[in-house]
Design a protein around this nucleic acid. Structure first.
Length: 671
DNA sequence: CGGCCTCGAGTTCC
DNA sequence: CTCGAGGCCG
């Protein structure tokens, strides 16, 4: 190399070109040409040169990758063209139905080709290049605007700071490159080992680790994480165009971007189905997690004709595999007694990873369910995450271990030893003892967390003071003093005063919440609300006959009987009186008045996460207009508010033809 | 009586 | 989210 004759500016430019080339060999091609030591030597030379001549530093210099200062927070950055999300299909029928729909919409016999790519379980980003140089990049955000994480993206070696141009090529003035940032599994394991060694919290799965790494305030930390990228498409572009998506991928690859080697172009949907089957099997071979296959109509002209619905392109689908399953040992079956006295068996499992999280317990519902599935203590069992969330035991993985026995519910309550009962025709066993400690404790937890929603007072608080004997019933709660709290660990002067204040303030909670918190069998939130509205006060409810209670909306003979019986119990009446004396609300007020509004009589359901609203805020906004907010979709549902990462409700809503509302439509509705 | 629809209750992980 | 079961309508 000719550093002796070149000017510093020439040498700096040459070094940048060489270093970029080696980064590309290392990160994108995975085929380094020089040793790390040699790379470091060249890098150090450039650093020295730039330090001596600060005016030679360019923003796209390899030395600038980890140089930025930690930022206070990320700025919002608007995407030049929106980042849509993908509709999913879960089986081959769904895939074929989509293909039929595509053909119908194109309305001709013209051939349709598809491009398949592994669906990377990572964090989506959009990178902006101006005249061939990386200028900024942002997370997906709500699809319209994301967070500008440019300093962190610069630290990722697989992202070119400068595109590789052909000889004499004039680069596009503005180009949006779309990709998925991910953490290789090997890097994920190494990261967790390091975090564990430093006594820090480990990351639950590679996707969280990647997303978390990308949102680090300090780019130095991001730089220490072995993040990489698979580039999978283009957004806004000027000066370049393509006929097909696959052609665009090849172009991106030739310009130095890391595109997935397993992307393929196929002439028929049957070929696509074969790819999906193949990768479901082969996914374990990869050094990164994929949760399906992305399928796109190749022709950009066809894409334009198909268009989008609710920011979801009609020309693409995500084929997502059935929930992951795993095998593990069923160590034991325990019994928990709920607040109503129901006995719930649950499984203690040898911890096992399913779909990125470690599962160690799972519910088993009831005796019948356990024996129908033929699950026995000591068995190797198959575990899956239903709806991608709740762990479930599917059944035994093979023959039973020698000496295992069918599960039998204990004859006596594990907490109070009372004789367990099982009403004819019902699935659940019950502990009939009203004085069973489980009832009192679980009722208190329900009161504090669900009904009264007392800030700073939760399950641990109740359990702790229950153990101390300070707390046996709801009235006890209102007699706890700050002085008493301070005797216990974790409470200082301020926190004790705060907790007592929060408890006292809960006396202002409306009648329907009090009714809900009393733990009357068959009375949940909705029934409590209906009862409060109908009777207006606890006195009228107490003096009502079973027939009168049955007149309330949603209450038939069964519930009416259970409610009348609860209020005829001497002890329960004393509880009501005591709470009334303490100042709790037993008269209906503002909260019980039905809201009359433009949406009265309509029921809406919410799924997924909204950008600007929490679930509770969205619910309150709808209710303020008179609407009801349900949690399951049916034909009677007026609309489904769809946020990010919607659940199965979206599928159902589409099946029964319920109107879908994105966040904007939702905001118009409540405006 | 059958078939929705709605409600209640218990749930996992972080 | 899912299951079980009560309520309601045809």
């Amino acid at each position: 190399m000719s550093s002796k004759t070149a000017t510093p500016a020439e040498r700096a430019a040459e070094l940048r070109r060489i270093l970029d080339y080696h980064l590309y060999r290392y990160h994108v091609l995975d085929d380094p040409e020089v040793s790390d030591a040699e790379y470091d030597r060249l890098f150090d030379e450039l650093v020295a040169l730039e330090e001596a001549n600060p005016d030679l530093v360019t923003p796209d210099s390899p030395t600038q990758r980890a140089g930025a200062e930690p930022s206070a927070e990320f700025a919002k950055s608007e995407h030049l063209s929106p980042m849509g999300s993908l509709e999913k299909v879960t089986d081959e029928n769904g895939l074929r139905k989509w293909a039929d729909d595509v053909r119908k919409r194109l309305d001709s016999d013209e051939p349709v080709a598809y491009v398949t790519e592994p669906k990377i379980d990572g964090s989506a980003v959009s990178l902006v290049y101006e005249n061939g140089a990386f200028v900024r990049g942002a997370t997906r955000g709500d699809g319209i605007r994301g967070e500008d994480v440019s300093p962190n993206l610069r630290t990722i070696g697989a992202i070119p700071l400068r595109m590789q141009l052909a000889e004499g090529e004039v680069p596009s003035s503005v180009l949006e490159v779309r990709g998925e940032i991910y953490l290789p599994l090997s890097g994920f394991r190494a990261l967790n080992e390091r975090l564990a060694a430093e006594g820090k919290k480990t990351a639950p799965n590679p996707r969280n680790a990647a997303a978390g790494s990308l949102r680090q305030k300090n780019p130095q930390i991001t730089a220490s994480r072995p993040l990489s990228i698979w580039v999978h498409g283009l957004g806004h572009r000027e000066g370049v165009d393509f006929e097909g998506h696959f052609e665009a991928l090849e172009w991106l690859r030739s310009r130095g971007f890391r595109t997935n080697p397993f992307a393929g172009r196929h002439e028929s949907i049957e070929e696509v189905a074969e790819v999906c089957r193949e990768w479901e099997r082969r996914r374990v071979e990869l050094d990164y997690e994929i949760d399906g296959i992305v399928i796109k109509v190749d022709s950009l002209a066809q894409q334009r004709r198909l268009g989008s619905l609710h920011q979801r392109p009609r020309w693409a689908r995500a084929y997502k595999w059935a929930p992951l399953t795993a095998q593990t040992k069923l160590l034991n079956i325990h019994i928990r007694v709920g607040r109503t006295g129901n006995l719930n068996p649950w499984a203690q499992l040898e911890p096992v990873e399913v779909g990125g999280v470690t599962i160690s317990t799972a519910t088993l519902h009831n005796e019948e369910d356990i024996n129908r599935k033929d699950i026995r203590k000591g068995d190797l069992v198959i575990v899956q995450r239903a709806g991608d969330v709740i762990p479930q035991i599917v059944g035994p993985a093979g023959p039973h271990k020698r000496g295992t026995k069918r599960f039998r519910m204990p004859a006596k309550c594990p907490l109070c030893e009372a004789e367990v009962v099982k009403p004819e025709g019902e699935a659940m066993h019950r502990c009939p003892n009203r004085a069973c400690p489980s009832r009192g404790l679980e009722t208190l937890i329900h009161w504090v967390m669900a009904a009264m929603d007392i800030e700073g007072v939760g399950e641990q608080f109740v359990r702790g003071f229950w153990k101390e004997g300070l707390l046996r019933s709801m009235p006890d709660l209102y007699r706890i003093t700050a002085e008493q709290l301070r005797e216990y660990e974790g409470f200082g002067e301020i926190s004790a005063a705060k907790a007592v204040d929060a408890i006292q303030r809960s006396k202002e909670q409306p009648f329907l919440r009090v009714l809900y918190g009393l733990n009357i069998p068959q009375v949940g939130w909705v029934t409590a609300q209906n009862l409060a509205r109908h009777f207006g006060s606890v006195d009228r409810l107490i003096s009502a006959s079973q027939e009168e209670i049955q007149e309330v909306e949603g209450i038939g003979p069964d519930r009416a009987e259970a409610i009348a019986e609860w209020f005829s119990d001497e002890e329960n009446r004393r509880l009501v009186e005591e709470l009334r004396d303490l100042g709790l609300t037993f008269e209906a007020g503002e909260a019980e008045r039905p809201v009359e509004g433009p949406l009265t009589g309509k029921t809406y359901v919410i799924t997924g996460t909204l950008e600007r609203w929490s679930r509770e805020e969205a619910r309150a906004a709808l209710e303020a207009k008179g609407a009801k907010v349900g949690d399951s979709v049916s034909k009677k549902t007026a609309g489904l508010v769809v946020g990010e990462e919607p659940g199965s409700k979206l599928e159902k809503a589409k099946r029964v033809g319920v109107e879908l509302l994105d966040e904007k439509a939702f905001e118009r509705l409540i405006a």
